[in-house]
Simulated scan of single mutants.
Amino acid sequence: MSDSTAYTESAKILLLEDDLLLAMDMEDYLLDRGHEVVGPFGRLVDALDAIPRNELAGAVVDLNLHGELSFPVIEELQARSVPIIVCTGYAELPEVKTRLQGLPLLPKPWTAHKLSSLMEETFGATQEPRDAPPSKIRN
């Protein structure tokens, strides 16, 4: 999270996930908890385009997008001090494990309990569902 972006209940969370069903499920989960979703995006170029145009409080990033690793997005978010949760089934590969060192990992298939826990630890996010969903942002 950048110094100018404090975490709030309606914080903007970037979502990068190439599996449509997983993206929709995670988007619903985030919206139900009062977050604004930037995305979801299924391509690196779209996420990279949205990052500088939004004050993000956090990001949930799938590591493997149809065979393309999302390190350019992770690096751009890190350069902007945006906290990241990496969603992956590839975290145990030695070359990947080294590059992801220190980042919170959400194993696939993800669970609401694990994501809630990681969001609280990483973003300081609340875990309680909200009554009214906020707006969805597609930038």
Rank of each mutant, 00 (worst) to 15 (best):
A57E: 11
E36N: 15
E76M: 14
A125M: 06
L14N: 09
P72H: 07
L21C: 04
Q101I: 00
A57T: 10
L103G: 00
E27D: 13
L63W: 07
V38F: 14
E27G: 01
V38M: 11
V86Y: 00
E76P: 01
K108A: 09
D46W: 03
L100F: 06
L69E: 13
V38D: 11
G89A: 15
I85L: 02
V37Q: 09
A47P: 09
A23E: 03
N64A: 10
A79W: 01
L20D: 14
T126N: 12
V60P: 04
V73A: 15
P129R: 12
R80N: 12
L30F: 11
R130A: 14
D49T: 14
A132R: 13
L105T: 05
L16A: 03
L22I: 14
C87T: 01
I51F: 06
A50D: 09
M119P: 08
L31H: 10
E68S: 12
V60Q: 01
G42L: 00
D19E: 15
V60Y: 02
H66I: 05
L115D: 09
F41V: 05
R80V: 05
F71T: 08
K114G: 02
T122R: 15
A50Q: 04
M26V: 15
N54K: 08
T111N: 03
P72C: 03
L48E: 13
S116M: 08
P52F: 09
I51R: 04
S116W: 05
P109S: 08
P109I: 07
H35A: 08
P109W: 06
G124K: 13
D49C: 02
D28K: 14
A23W: 05
Q101K: 14
G42K: 05
D25Q: 13
Q101S: 11
V60A: 02
L93Y: 15
C87W: 01
P129E: 04
E55T: 02
G102F: 01
K108Q: 10
L15S: 02
Q127A: 13
G34F: 03
W110Q: 09
F41M: 05
Y29G: 04
F41P: 06
S117W: 10
V73L: 05
D131I: 09
M119N: 06
D62A: 07
P107W: 09
P52E: 09
E76H: 04
P107C: 09
A47I: 07
F123D: 14
S70N: 04
E27L: 05
S70V: 06
W110I: 03
E128Y: 01
L106G: 08
L65H: 08
P40G: 07
M24R: 07
D28G: 14
P72M: 06
Q101T: 07
R99Q: 14
G124A: 12
E36V: 15
H113C: 00
A125P: 02
L15I: 03
F41C: 07
L106H: 02
V96W: 11
L93E: 15
H35D: 06
L103W: 00
E76L: 13
I84Q: 00
